[in-house]
Design a protein around this nucleic acid. Structure first.
Lengths: 248, 248
DNA sequence: CGTTTAATTGAAAGCAGTCAAACTATGTGG
DNA sequence: CCACATAGTTTGACTGCTTTCAATTAAACG
């Protein structure tokens, strides 16, 4: 049964930007893998290690992270189910950042060599996965802008918007808002802020009616205004089909 | 004569991390291209455009940049000769950021389709260029850490160190220090700071004997201390050979 | 329930921003 | 070679966003 294969969401993700035929999909489904469940904050990969596997996030959430010399932590990206957290290391020997589970999460560990063999044998999948890493790069760039040039209110709003849109694009969005899987400290580490300031900024957004919260759940009663405050434009997510073969 | 080919530096760069054979190099040299010289601050590519070309920086310097809604500018990366500023767009239709010349600069414009044909026909080059974009991603991640979690002194020092190391890795370093091709305002836009604060921070580094300046020229009389202040570790540049075939 | 973790709040301090002006380097034209 | 214009650098005074420190409240967990 298809839905029991851990790569279904990955396939769905790839197909949002690149056309895959049945053989492509089957090749992905036949990838060897080990399923592993990780506890919140467990390390999937540490900086300096030489990963033998690519990690596909099957369920739950994860994040990339780097530490500054003074102990400060910077979260670099948040990952949702169906994302391959580690195409980044496919051709690099040494991990340059840490990957941690955000919530309890399941990963499919695919041996790097098998993943390479897959993309070497199937140009179309090569292209699909390259596109994935290019979109990841684009998200990193927007993250730099968010951390570098937006004030705390805009930056936090932007992160919340991005998460909403990405969940939605993968068909994982709930009807109204979502359960934010991060603590305020983690939000701070993602935005280059302190948890105290995240708390205050969150409350400001709430008081301005831009978000509604109960516990970790957030929803957006005035989505349009929220987008404006967040300075959010989804172009950088490259959600449209990237390969329009006959439209030229 | 080899040195007249605009791709020699690109080849050198690729060979720092991936082995290329003579046929690979020849294939690159035979890429069709148009050479274009750009004035400082001229746009090579604008956000929202659909680039038809990949851009290889032949001489001079360039940078990527995005604008926030309030007009704030964030510089995302600095590029030195031999870098392909636009593998990023090889499989993406719409540019998600701007590319500008930093100094007067020469670019080789290579039609996207020819570049794709090249990587499709030569797995080794595909791998080399993929590795390039993965390293770019790694540099973006370090940039996020720099902007998000380092104070102005560390962050500025880090940028100066990175530039020194990258120039050196490409064999473009001069004996003592280098001519910094950026204004203080551009440095500010790269670090998420104002030009005024960059000025003060620069002076602080100078007064602490960590850098020596005359006009735009900077050198590092106490390189070790400079690295420490910058919290600089070159791992993220992945300068070592990434493909060690028989060393396993 | 008691314990631990996360969220909230207040007061004070600090790093970086803003505004404005002066200074320097570079380039242009007479 | 000098007057002038322009772009970039430097400096000072003041403001403000964010941090720090510390304490309290609420939620999650076994």
């Amino acid at each position: 049964m298809a839905s029991t294969n851990p790569f279904e969401l990955l396939i769905r993700k790839l197909m949002t930007h690149t056309h895959l035929d049945g053989a492509d999909c089957e090749a992905i489904r036949r990838l060897p893998f080990k399923l592993r469940s990780m506890e919140p904050s467990a390390y999937v990969l540490r900086e300096g290690e030489r990963p033998e596997y690519c990690f596909v996030l099957v369920s739950g959430f994860a994040y990339r992270q780097k530490l500054a010399g003074d102990g400060g932590r910077q979260i670099l990206s948040i990952h949702i189910p169906g994302e391959a957290v580690d195409f980044q290391n496919l051709y690099l020997d040494e991990a340059d950042h840490n990957i941690q589970a955000l919530t309890r999460a399941e990963f499919a560990f695919v041996p790097k060599l098998d993943m390479r063999a897959l993309v070497d044998s199937r140009p179309n999948l090569n292209r699909a996965m390259s596109t994935c890493t290019l979109i990841d790069s684009s998200i990193f760039r927007e993250w730099i802008l968010n951390v570098g040039r937006r004030d705390s209110r805009s930056a936090l709003a932007h992160l919340l918007c991005e998460f909403a849109i990405r969940l939605d694009a993968m068909g994982l969005a709930e009807q109204y808002g979502y359960e934010l899987p991060m603590t305020q400290e983690q939000l701070g580490d993602a935005l280059g802020l302190t948890s105290v300031h995240v708390n205050r900024t969150m409350k400001a957004l709430e008081q301005q009616g831009l978000i509604v919260r109960n516990n970790r759940r957030v929803s957006f009663p005035r989505w349009k205004d929220m987008r404006d405050v967040a300075d959010f434009n989804s172009r950088y997510l490259h959600l449209e089909r990237q390969d329009q073969p006959p439209t030229r």
